[in-house]
Write a protein that binds this DNA or RNA. Structure first.
Length: 733
DNA sequence: AAGTGTACTTAGGACCCCCGCC
DNA sequence: GGCGGGGGTCCTAAGTACACTT
């Protein structure tokens, strides 16, 4: 595939195939859209515009070229839309399977896109007060550090900051070379570079609409060139076609390697996977070539390279909405559904082993219970010299178990599990193994508790609880119970089943039928939240969010105070006292703020130099702050009047404030409940989408209210299920 | 049987942009 | 009509699983 770099990569033969699909689907959609069209029988309604546009730049959106067309012309779609139609045309779940063991027969793509080379800014860091002359590579490394947020999750955390700095400085010094004067981090001052970067941000903020459009076009050009892949004649979206740029490694938690320099990856380090018959995509960097070209139809990756931090392979793959991912997603959910038929047998099997003589059997049974009931991950072994110290089921250590955490005495069956899981997210739950939820219906809570007591006996804090188990031994046992069963299937299974049960509860409530779609969505999110809690999907509350929460809290306090004042006014009224507090003039503040905003806007428009742009952004930020203050002062006396109010006015306002307070309290509670729970992860990865689709259909909730466009594309295979669908073993057939 | 390598899924945070609210 | 917050997307780290090697 020779094709020059300037054009969208050539699609000669595949283009024909694509168009076939494209026009089919497209014509359907178009017919719907253009009822007025008199040319219904036109075989390929958008043929002409589509054909000559596919290769041309996307800039001519509003098509000056279409001057001569009749008024009945169809709406001209943007290139992205047309490509989307082309992709949607392929219903892989209705198409024949590829050869066994293979993912594809032919695959063609444009390879990886690389970031621009580093352009030095010339701003000097100080060492011991002296400005330093650095080479481009040295300056780049210094700039990576300067770009780090001082209050962020790495440098803002006193536990991780020293690790980050130590690693960064070691790598920085090796870039500088041994003889360089820079030897001590404490004498380094990156302030000037940091200031420069902030200024660049300011300049970027002062961008005009036109510049914005240009930027978007450039981005789209890259998307059209690299973002699509042709698999067996079908257009598919590529997930990550941009090579990861160099920078500092941002490992999570207490990752021992955080701060190390992540090197720039050259084309020579990249392997490309394409089919033999289509030719190799040209390397997009002048004077460079791919490290290797493979033709392996057994794998789904399009490109791979090794990163220098952990020496791990990274891949370029198709996007989540592609057929490859869709197929494996569907089979994942089918496997989980299949577990419905086996779960009874499996629970019986591990119940009988909970009291086995062999320690290994007991541990196996106990671990199975943990994975099944607590939805823990399997927990592979980790090297704490190389990675953060996080654990899962098999790697749990004695120190992660706290018996009788509330010091209620020996006769309770409570254990607090406290450990860092994947991504160093804290798992902290007290499990009462004697509670009904773990004992009813063959829950086995008490037996499991006894086993835990036994397993930790005479062990050191740092010993593993399940010392006889490994993920692979556990998984090979699971394979004996059900074909293809592994530990992670339990998470999918439990998440999906929980969603189904919680959703069923919603439908059974008395007032369900009277709820609006929006109210039903709230109920769906509540069900979703139960799943997220089960899977321990969390998000850390950022400082901004915390502030926001605090602000709402303060506002609430103000409202409550205002209500009190209103009541006191009412009392004074009754006494005939006309001395009530009145509004102070606030107009001036507001007007000044408005004026400042106008000024800033003008500055932005008139800005020519970078300096002007920085000034404009500053002015804009200050003006906005001024306006916030004006709004704030308005809010503080919003309950008052300009002149003495009547009794009715006061009464009315008290009622209004009561509803305001109630509303805000709800809002606050809602935010507080959700601030640490992340609903997205379970929606994307764990809950069978067919359950959601069926629920939406049964309850006349538009699917758009639950699944975003990307999710609807990702789950396109699940959209046609019947409204009465149940998540059970039938699905797997 | 443990170690190593490969390929894939799962994950949270940063950032951006759009839509509902004032 | 403007703006701020939140949803959505992007980014890439961090898991699981399993084949293959030693």
């Amino acid at each position: 595939m020779p094709g020059s770099d300037d054009e969208d990569f050539e699609l000669s033969t595949r283009e024909k195939k694509r168009r076939k699909k494209h026009s089919k689907k497209h014509s359907k959609k178009e017919k719907k859209k253009s009822k007025s069209s008199s040319t219904k029988k036109r075989p390929r309604p958008i043929k002409s515009s589509s054909d000559d546009d596919f290769h041309s730049a996307p800039k001519q959106k509003n098509g000056k070229r279409s001057v001569a067309k009749p008024p009945t012309q169809l709406k001209k779609l943007e290139k992205t839309d047309r490509l989307n139609y082309a992709m949607q045309a392929f219903l892989w779940w209705e198409a024949p399977e590829p050869r066994p063991g293979c993912q594809w027969d032919t695959m063609e793509h444009a390879g990886v896109s690389f970031p621009e080379p580093y352009v030095p800014h010339g701003v000097k860091m100080l060492y011991d007060g002296e400005p330093m002359d650095l080479t481009a590579a040295e300056e780049e490394a210094a700039t990576f550090f300067a770009a780090m947020d001082q209050d962020g999750m790495h440098l803002g955390n006193p536990k991780t900051a020293p690790i980050f700095i130590k690693n960064f400085f070691a790598d920085f010094r090796s870039v500088l070379g041994r003889k360089h004067v820079i030897k001590n981090f404490d004498k380094c001052d990156f302030g000037a570079i940091r200031k420069h970067l902030n200024e660049q941000k300011m300049i970027k903020k002062a961008i005009t609409e036109r510049e914005k459009a240009v930027r978007k076009d450039v981005k789209n050009d890259a998307l059209y060139k690299f973002g699509y892949c042709l698999v067996d004649g079908h257009l598919e979206k590529v997930g990550n076609y941009n090579m990861e740029p160099p920078g500092t490694f941002r490992g999570r938690g207490e990752h021992p390697k955080m701060g190390k320099l992540k090197q720039r990856v050259l084309p020579e380090q990249v392997f490309i996977n394409v089919s033999e018959c289509v030719g190799v995509p040209p390397c997009s960097v002048d004077g460079h070539a791919w490290g290797d070209v493979r033709h392996d139809p057994c794998v789904m990756w399009l490109g791979q390279w090794k990163e220098n931090i952990n020496n791990q392979v990274k891949y370029m793959q198709l996007a989540a909405q592609s057929s490859f991912k869709g197929k494996s997603d569907r089979s994942k959910y089918n496997k989980a559904a299949k577990l419905c038929a086996f779960i009874g047998k499996i629970r019986k099997a591990y119940k009988s082993k909970l009291k086995a003589k062999e320690l290994e059997d007991r541990q196996l049974a106990t671990a199975m219970w943990v994975i099944d009931r607590l939805a823990l991950r399997v927990g592979g072994e980790k090297d704490t010299e190389e990675e953060a110290d996080t654990v899962g089921c098999c790697s749990l250590r004695v120190e992660h178990l706290h018996f009788d955490p509330n010091e209620e005495g020996d006769d309770n069956c409570e254990i607090e599990l406290e450990f860092l899981g994947k991504d160093s997210m804290l798992f902290k739950q007290t499990i009462d193994f004697g509670a009904t939820m773990y004992t009813e219906n063959n829950g086995m809570g008490e037996e499991v508790y006894k086993n835990f007591v036994k397993f930790v006996k005479n062990k050191k804090k740092t010993d593993e609880v399940f010392d006889t188990l490994t993920p692979s031994s556990l998984n090979s046992h699971l394979k004996e119970l059900m074909e293809g069963l592994t530990a992670k299937v339990f998470r999918t299974f439990n998440a999906s089943l929980t969603l189904q049960e919680e959703l069923r509860k919603t439908e059974q409530s008395g007032s369900w039928k009277t709820l609006s779609a929006a109210e039903k969505v709230v109920e769906y999110n509540n069900a979703n939240r139960e799943v997220a809690i089960l899977c321990n999907h969390q998000k850390t509350v950022s400082k901004a969010q915390e502030n926001q929460l605090e602000n709402i809290g303060n506002k609430l306090e103000t409202l409550k105070h205002q209500k009190k004042v209103l009541k006191s006014i009412l009392i004074r009224h009754a006494k005939g006292d006309k001395e009530v507090p009145l509004k102070k003039p606030e107009k001036e503040l507001k007007e000044a703020a408005d004026q400042a905003i106008l000024n800033a806007k003008r500055m932005k428009e008139e800005a020519k130099t970078d300096e002007d742009k920085i000034k404009a952004t500053h002015a804009d930020e200050e003006a906005k702050q001024q306006r916030r203050e004006a709004t704030q002062s308005k809010f503080i006396q919003a309950h008052l009047w300009d002149k003495v109010p009547t009794k009715e006015q006061v009464c009315k306002r008290i009622t209004l404030w009561t509803t305001k307070i109630a509303k805000m309290e709800m809002n606050l509670k809602h935010r507080d409940d959700n601030k640490e729970v992340s609903l997205g992860t379970s929606k994307i990865n764990y809950m069978d989408p067919r359950i959601t689709v069926a629920w939406c259909k049964r309850n006349e909730v538009p699917i758009e209210k639950i699944f975003s466009k990307t999710l609807r594309d990702k789950f396109n295979w699940a959209m046609s299920v019947p409204p009465n669908l149940e998540f059970n073993a039938e699905l797997a057939k």
